[in-house]
């Protein structure tokens, strides 16, 4: 069967670079990132906005890429885990390394992206604030104590880069 497929073209700005992709308009940004652009750090966990594994930054805000349709994404300034820093030097990534947070590691890019966006809006959070901010991200390995500690450590590092 010959099928004539005309998929719309979209221009995206991701990690500071422009990309042109063809995709059906209802395609979640998650799958465009993963399948078409080889940005596989953004993970698939539930597809319904419940787990946070697919968290990216849109104009600096933590956003679920599984619920973001490609047709809405053209005007967005998108950052994925691959673009959070050049080589992993973002204070949140460094804190994750110092605390050795990951177990299986699958949820962690989503956790890091949520934490990085959160710490921009609240640079000196209480543990209660951290627990509320991170509550949307599931870690099936339950590395929650370490995530909490790492967000705290990252905030200290951001406030006092000399110290840590």
């Amino acid at each position: 069967m010959l099928k004539i497929e005309v998929m719309p073209t979209y221009n995206l700005k991701i990690n500071g670079k422009s990309h042109t992709v063809n995709a059906d308009e209802d395609t979640p940004l998650l799958w465009v990132l993963r399948d078409q652009l080889d940005l596989v750090g953004t993970k698939f966990g539930c597809g319904i906005g419940q787990c946070g594994a697919c968290t990216i930054h849109v104009d600096g805000h933590a956003t679920r890429s599984c619920l973001t349709q490609i047709s809405e994404a053209e005007t967005m300034e998108i950052t994925t885990i691959e673009g959070l820093s050049k080589t992993g030097e973002h204070p949140v990534q460094q804190a994750w390394k110092t605390i050795d947070v990951p177990q299986c590691g699958y949820c962690q890019s989503g956790q890091i992206m949520t934490a990085a966006a959160f710490l921009k809006s609240n640079t000196n959070p209480s543990n209660e604030a951290i627990r509320t901010a991170m509550n949307g991200n599931i870690c099936r390995c339950a590395s929650y104590n370490s995530i909490e500690d790492a967000v705290k450590l990252a905030s200290e590092q951001i406030n006092n880069p000399q110290k840590a």
């Binding site: 750090g41 953004t42 959070l84 992993g88 390394k97 990951p102 890019s109 890091i112």
Partner: peptide
Amino acid sequence: GNVDIDKIITGQPLFGLD
């Protein structure tokens, strides 16, 4: 620390899905 830590925190391909 976890030997794969640098790849995990920078989102490099590691998992089957990747």
